[in-house]
Amino acid sequence: MRLMKNASLATLAFMIGAALASSGQAADGGHAHIERQTWSFGGFTGQYDQAQLQRGFQIYKDSCAFCHGLKRVRFRNLAEPGGPQFPEDAVKALAQSWPNKVTDGPDDQGKMFEREPKPFDPILGPYKNDNEARASQNGALPPDLSLIAKARNVEYTGTWWAHPFSMLRDIATSYQEGGPDYIYALLTGYEEPPADFTLAEGMQYNKAFPGHQIAMPPPIAKDSFIKYQDGSGSMEQNARDIAAFLAWAGDPSLNTRKATGWLVMLYLLVTTLLLYAGKRVIWSKIPH
């Protein structure tokens, strides 16, 4: 009984806190406030949307790949379950026609040579190394995108007293989508700089980027975006799809992980309850 009372009190406190936390966050419209988006793979039940990952890959191929590599993802991964799952033949053809060749060797003559990628090869960007990238990008380095969704996160911007409640809410709802949220905000965050803001030469203003000065020119815009095969598309849709694709690129085992997680939680919950019942029976034999 006492346990139940404690539990319900804790739940109540938690709910009040969570409500306060969300209002606290809304109140702070600070410098780099990043809106949380709804993702098919978000929360503890989420799974990737295969069609979205396929659209996302199209954006990567038709836009990002001109500067950014995806070296920790291999072509074969694109055909695997839990990802875009393109047909294997399509992936083979894609690898063969990929513009950025693989350096292999040495051959019989001791020379390195270039060859067409095979499905087991990594998805390479256009530059052989960081120096080449910087040389052709005005000193800026386009990062490899394999882990970009994992390597970025959203900072908490609310009040200090609401922070613990916000953390508890994120733990209870298993919020892990800070990376995709940030990518979406970045890709849709290009705008004219405020009047008092001085941009360095060759830089763009972006409201989501830390410091607001970013070297990357807007890859997509309101009036210039990538059209999908069915002819539809918009800047927001593009941004959402590529963010989802990059989330998969950084965490390709998410579908299995969450599905396994539910079995594990179920097993543990049932076992805990059985053990608790067993413990009650054992202890009921003696006064305590």
Binding site: I171, S174, Q176, G261, M265, L269, T272
Partner: peptide, 27 residues
């Protein structure tokens, strides 16, 4: 007696553990 209670505590703790392993690995 103590073993029965320890087992309950351990599995309840494992619930929290598994929640992070499977749903919040990077949190």
């Amino acid at each position: 007696y103590a073993v029965a209670k320890d087992a309950v505590g351990m599995f309840a703790f494992l619930l929290l553990f598994a929640w992070f392993v499977f749903f919040l690995p990077d949190y």
